[in-house]
Design a binder for these strands. Structure first.
Lengths: 238, 238
DNA sequence: AAAAGCATAAATGTATACATGAGCCTGTCA
DNA sequence: TGACAGGCTCATGTATACATTTATGCTTTT
């Protein structure tokens, strides 16, 4: 198990940032963090650098880091970006073709997701993990390491990940309907890829991501009590 | 002037990697590099981490770094990725609209590029820097910090940047014709943005990037003597 | 002879001490 | 009273010493 101090520091700081314990804009000092975490400055430094790459911190003028601030538009753009990249994965998979083995795997995931959303056998926890699996498998489908890495990066910003709003959705009225709609899009994407319909696969994957934009609007403007349920949304300042 | 040892180490190592002094797959040792550069391990470590983020190095199993190997397909994918992202910038600029101030700036760049490609006043050096300016301005056009940063990242891999193949193109027969074709695409992109034609702007920007794919094929399969003129192409192994 | 386990050496991970530089406060001079 | 200069302080950048882990090779045992 990889349990280096540096890794632990990254996790601890990430948790604190996302929990809102470190408010957006707050400057972070190496010595203070080191004492707080009971380790030396060295792993703290590498953790800060890692979190900057992750997009949670930004360098201050003249050295040092601060917790990053995001605008509503930033979050919307990050979601759009993920959609564009996942759409590219879907299109390339369609254009280049996929092995029947990979296609079967996608269809098995679809079937499992079907069971998870079915009112008869509804299982939210399963849906959550299966949804993440589906999106990871999709990213890997065209067989491009470069694209896969970039999609993974785009989902690092917590509010931009494929399952960022799932938790909060549970509390909204039309929740189950939106789950069903999303699952229908999953089916369309796989069908398009199987039929080598690149443009369709790309368009549906993009639109699929944009569902999150609607959820974002709901959380930010209709029911702000849900903000705490979406990881990283505490970093959004107006 | 920012002349920290860490920054210097990044530049020195990047140069050596791109120059082929450190062959792809080669493992890098901190102590050796530190002695070679006449500095301590600390800035070397941060430089290695930075170059990993840049995509030039990859972590070895169990710690340590090695010079990254790329396949032909990797390079093609990186180019496609840049095209997708620049296409997104073009589309969003068209959809969201741009200020007349920004539009004028783009048109001034176009006019300057026109002069640079005109046989009467041909100036390759000008074209090179103006082309880079054009692509940077395009990335900034939709006003999205997130997208701009991601486009910048995509161009970090040296062979995926917008001007990666310019130098090598000088030596190919149909060089000047391809420059004129590229410039025509620049015009189309700006025209589409001005007319709020998002789909067109995106499609043309993508196709524009794909010119690099043609150049890549030429360099790799038709005239490998040009490989040294494209930064980073020495990292491609079959 | 082959496989497993231990020992050893070398690399990375971590801690700490030292150097440097930027920001700020104060005091003095115009 | 305002502005500039000088020094002080604190945070980051760097060097080095120490700890830990990993890989390799040799020995031993089956």
């Amino acid at each position: 198990m990889e349990t280096g101090r540096s890794t632990r520091a990254v996790m601890a700081l990430r948790d604190r940032i996302l929990a809102g314990a470190l408010p957006p804009g707050e400057r972070l000092f190496e010595v203070a963090l080191a004492e707080e975490l009971g380790i030396s400055r060295t792993p703290v430094r590498s953790a800060l650098a890692a979190l900057e790459q992750e997009g949670l911190l930004e360098r201050q003028h003249g050295g040092g880091y601060a917790v990053r601030c995001f605008s509503f538009q930033d979050v919307a753009d990050a979601i759009e970006l993920r959609g564009v990249l996942e759409g590219t994965a879907a299109r390339l998979a369609a254009e280049r073709g996929v092995t029947s083995r990979d296609l079967d795997a996608m269809r098995r995931l679809l079937a499992a997701l079907d069971r998870a959303v079915d009112p008869e056998s509804y299982d939210f926890a399963s849906y959550q993990s299966l949804n993440a699996e589906f999106h990871e498998a999709l990213a890997a489908l065209p067989g491009s390491q470069i694209l896969r890495a970039e999609i993974s990066r785009a989902g690092r910003l917590p509010f931009a990940s494929a399952s960022a709003f799932l938790q909060s959705q549970q509390a909204v009225p039309a929740f189950h309907r939106s789950l069903i709609a999303a699952q229908a899009q999953h089916h369309s994407i796989v069908e398009a890829i199987a039929a080598r319909e690149g443009a369709r696969a790309e368009a549906v994957a993009r639109e699929h991501a944009r569902q999150a934009r609607g959820n974002l609007r709901y959380v930010m403007f209709k029911d702000r009590s849900l903000i705490d349920q979406v990881p990283g949304l505490s970093l959004v300042v107006e």
